[in-house]
Amino acid sequence: MSTLVKKQRDFHKLSKTWNVLFNLFAGIFAFLCVFPFIFVVIISFTDEGVLARDGYSLFPAKWSLSAYRYVFESGDMLLRSYGVTILVTLLGTLLSLLFISFYAYAISRKSFRYRNFFAFFAFFTMLFNGGLVPTYIIVTQFLGLKDTIWALVMPLAVNAFYIMILRTFYSTSVPDALIESGKIDGAGEFRIFLTLVLPLSLPGLATIALFSTLGYWNDWFNALLYIDDPNLVPLQSMLMRIETSMQFIMQNSTNSSLSLEALRSMPQDTSRMAMVVLATGPIIFAYPFFQRYFIQGLTVGAVKE
């Protein structure tokens, strides 16, 4: 019997050679995932003239900060756009977690009488919507949110797909025995959710928080529709406006008052890469914090028998 158990343990144990090969494969795959962003960072620090002459290179002949200098020439507007984006992302993510977690928990409970109706109500919005014009009229005229922070927050606050994901997580990961034990102890629905369900839901909530954060951080379309105040323009929309202005100058260089030398020195390609770095850098550094909660939430909570 002991020999059989030992053979089973040896079968599930990788040899040193296979362990090295799998680690090497994982390392190469991780490098291929990270390499494009590293290459974009290198290009953003490359001199525009060297880039036009030699093309893209991992080791450019001349480094330059002209691309970032050109982007930051907008002065306080870029920093203000960063502040608006950070505020919208934090506020929107918190509201999304609040609305989606409550909604998904309600339709995941079999004791809720109208769970099928509200589940279908959320699912129906994934198939059909009112269209752009009715949405614009509701946001600007009916709700009066034009040129406010809430015009950037509320349209993305509730996502039916995220509701379905979290509902499935509640149904499969939160045992009914845990909720029944809370009811036996005299706890209400709200207290059961906060003290019993919420600690078990950290992996699902962290996933939804990451999705919502990415959605708010990368959103520029709502700003294009609802924001005319330059003090409320988010980062993505501001970078798009800088890019549009630069393209307009280059396409109309013959009618421009700028000199030919100034037009040639304009960091057209490198500034695009600098914008990518400025737009994606903060969210890349924020991802490890969500990853920590993925791992931590897996071991929280248990049902005692």
Rank of each mutant, 00 (worst) to 15 (best):
R109P: 01
K110P: 01
K110T: 10
S111A: 12
F112M: 10
Y114M: 08
Y114H: 10
R115A: 15
R115W: 14
F117L: 08
F117E: 03
F118M: 02
F118G: 05
A119H: 12
A119Q: 13
F121S: 15
A122M: 15
A122F: 08
A122N: 14
A122I: 14
T125V: 08
L127Y: 12
L127K: 10
F128H: 03
P134V: 05
T135Y: 09
Y136N: 02
Y136T: 06
Y136I: 11
I137Q: 03
I138S: 04
Q141A: 13
F142I: 15
L143G: 00
L143Y: 02
G144I: 11
G144T: 06
L145V: 00
K146T: 09
K146Q: 10
T148K: 08
T148Q: 10
I149E: 10
I149R: 07
L152C: 08
M154G: 06
M154K: 09
M154Q: 13
L156V: 09
L156I: 14
L156Y: 09
A157D: 12
A157W: 10
N159H: 13
Y162Q: 14
M164H: 07
I165W: 02
L166R: 05
L166C: 05
R167D: 00
F169M: 08
F169I: 09
Y170S: 09
Y170H: 02
T172P: 00
V174H: 01
P175R: 08
A177Q: 12
A177N: 10
A177R: 12
L178C: 05
L178S: 04
L178A: 10
I179F: 01
K183W: 15
K183I: 13
D185Q: 14
G186N: 08
G186I: 13
G188F: 08
E189F: 10
F190P: 00
R191G: 05
I192R: 01
L196P: 07
L196K: 03
V197M: 09
V197Y: 13
L198R: 08
S201L: 11
L202Y: 11
L202G: 11
P203E: 00
P203F: 03
P203I: 06
G204D: 07
G204E: 03
L205Y: 06
L205E: 07
T207G: 04
T207K: 00
I208Q: 00
L210P: 02
S212A: 09
T213L: 01
W220T: 04
F221C: 04
N222L: 12
N222P: 06
L225Q: 03
Y226N: 04
Y226R: 05
I227S: 06
I227D: 00
D228A: 07
D228H: 05
D229A: 06
P234D: 09
L235V: 08
Q236C: 02
Q236H: 07
S237T: 10
M238D: 04
L239A: 01
M240H: 09
R241D: 04
I242H: 13
I242Q: 15
I242M: 15
